[in-house]
Design a protein around this nucleic acid. Structure first.
Lengths: 392, 392
DNA sequence: CGAGACACCA
DNA sequence: TGGTGTCTCG
């Protein structure tokens, strides 16, 4: 028995709008912690992971874990029948073959009820790729949308390069080449943490296939071999980082809002700096400067809040003028130089989630899938996209 | 000789936008009472009737009845050349082969003149179906649009069911079933009147063909036989109702603004309650309560106003807070349980008229065409749609 | 201003 | 039935 009441149907509507062109069928996994969905896109290049946490619901009850296999297109249609501000209740009996959605108008003189046929979907065990990264970018989701849309006019791929200079998005096309450089707010610091969530333990990052790079002419120096040997490197690397992460989170337990400030980068900053890149010689210098930046990071306070964070954040930014550019600031954290090439088609698709929340986070390491994370108060939607191989 | 001056071209524009996809050619019948248009849609399933009453014009003169056969698409194009707030004058000489449209900008520094070629169109004598109904629903035209558009995502047909519970729109589709229940404002009363207009005398309700029901799996218990025998019932029924209606209209003649209040439901309320349904046992009680509802009915005052009613109404609802939900309230009147199935495609099409006026009225009786009526101050646009047969 | 939806056309 | 153009919505 599942009964989940959302205060506003709009969240669900936006989520499904965001994934409907990526995924045709998917299981909504309901458990007492909330509802999650994980699915590969149809070409198995991208992976999408959605979570709606239990306490983001007005009311939530799920007696025992149950997968609800839905056709995403059908669910999207049914959700189109909800007004954005309708109260939306999802119900499914155990072993039910339909998911019942009830929409109640705010003034409650209209009650709509929809029964969506459920289907059995093979629960493909999807490995979520590694959870620690060499680079983390936080920027306005609207700006991210704009960048990938702009570049998609020129070419099919974008090379995302994180360096001390900032983060550069570059695309080469038939008619024109273009690139966008984001400078970042303050000095570049170390990557302070991976995405927050409960899927940190799943470790087989191979669910997202490597995509054959089909355009762009630069840097094919390593190819597959590096891919293999990096895999080994990453494995060790990840263990190290997980250890570091544990320490970090313990420190943060005392004061969640201080997580960025209290984090000690010196240890794992040195540890994590390992492979291919050799431009990190002066990173210690940057680490020192970074402390100043961290103190002014708007993200630190926002990120730790749960549930209604997006609302409260908005109110805050209205209230005090000093932070109204909070949505615009670009935060760049980097342990080592990262350069990856991705299909713009997917990134454009991912960026549809920008209507969910003002900020988006990008996590990258060389030769592993990019993570694009939209964390809204009541949960998150995350996309993983394998890089095109052969990028420099 | 016809000369008809409209204060705002927008009315005509909207009217033609509303019918242009339903009708390709039609006669505008001009007489001293105004201009009417009646046409079957191209597949002869739906009938559309438009009236522009004489006193809704800024100036109106029509010496003798004349039909103006126009290609609706062409007229639409010509009307697109008018700005919404242009003063629009229609002119046609007797026996003319063109209709002249003149648009004068409000500041009158621009005068446009268009001559639309006329054509001879067989005046198919169109029977308007019966004018008294077992159920009457008045609701926000935007909400009606929304409901039929939502349900059209799921299936091809909608079952509209009026009961004491309210009015339910239900559609079954491949992927999902859905229904919308509107509760109605206040207790459910008797049907207090049919649509107001001058077409009450035309009685052959068969102009709108019965449409073969092609989907929906429930309730085929009766089929054709009932259809036949109901036809006889309706014939008697209609006579009774027409009598009642005459009486009613006489009452209303004295004070058109009071038509709902002054109407005495006891007589024809009893008379009209006749056939199939047996859930009217407590309707007398409801009739008494209904008076209270009627007094607060926003529709009564609004309906009778002419010309600029929609504008003034809007201003009013802004001005005094008590009536701002005037546009949202659902009024349900029912003599007996009604359940009919219609093609959503047509209803969606009809609902395009919602930009003409905030409220729409639905009139229904079992096994006869649905009437969807948009009454704006200067006239009306009404649609008749045959039910799919075999519905329960 | 972009994108989805809808109608028209081929 | 699919593609294209327009329109309205976000």
């Amino acid at each position: 028995m599942l009964e989940a009441k959302l205060a506003e149907a709009s969240v669900l509507k936006k989520l499904l709008d965001a994934i409907k062109e990526l995924v045709t069928d998917a299981n909504f996994e309901c458990s007492e912690e909330g509802i999650t969905l994980q699915a590969m896109d149809n070409s198995h290049v991208a992976l999408v992971a959605v979570k709606l946490v239990q306490n983001g619901f007005k009311k939530y009850r799920c007696d025992r874990p149950m997968p609800l296999g839905v056709n995403v297109g059908s669910l999207t249609k049914v959700l189109k029948c909800a007004k954005d501000d309708d109260v939306c209740t999802l119900r499914a009996a155990d072993e039910a073959d339909v998911l019942n959605l009830v929409y109640e108008a705010k003034n409650s003189d209209r009650i709509s009820s929809y029964d969506l046929k459920l289907m059995d979907i093979d629960a493909e065990t999807l490995g979520i790729p590694k959870t620690s990264y060499e680079a983390r970018i936080v920027l306005s989701s609207a700006e991210f949308t704009r960048i990938v849309r702009d570049l998609s006019l020129l070419g099919d791929s974008v090379r995302i390069e994180v360096s001390k200079e900032g983060v550069r998005f570059a695309s080469d096309g038939e008619a024109a080449n273009g690139n966008v450089l984001l400078k970042g707010q303050g000095p570049i610091g170390k990557v302070e943490r991976g995405p927050q969530g409960d899927d940190s333990d799943e470790e087989d990052g191979d669910a997202v296939k490597k995509e054959k790079k089909d355009d762009g002419e630069e840097g094919d120096e390593e190819e597959e071999e590096v891919d293999k040997e990096e895999e080994g490197e990453k494995e060790k690397d990840k263990k190290k980082k997980d250890k570091a992460k544990v320490k970090k989170e313990k420190v943060n337990d005392g004061d969640v809002e201080m997580d960025e400030e209290e984090y000690q980068p010196d240890e794992d900053g040195e540890e994590e700096k390992d492979e291919d890149e050799d431009e990190d010689e002066d990173e210690d210098g940057e680490s020192k400067k970074r402390k100043k930046k961290s103190n002014s990071s708007p993200r630190s306070a926002k990120k730790a809040k749960t549930a209604s964070s997006s609302k409260s954040k908005k109110g805050k930014s209205k209230a005090n003028d000093g932070e109204e550019d909070e949505d615009e600031a670009v935060i760049i954290q980097m342990n080592s130089h990262v350069s990856l090439t991705f299909s713009l088609k997917y990134l454009v698709n991912f960026s549809k989630s920008s209507n969910l929340v003002k900020r988006v986070e990008l996590y990258m390491s060389n030769d592993v899938p990019l993570l694009v994370s939209y964390d809204f108060g009541q949960g998150y939607i995350r996309y993983y996209l394998a890089p095109k191989i052969g990028d420099d």
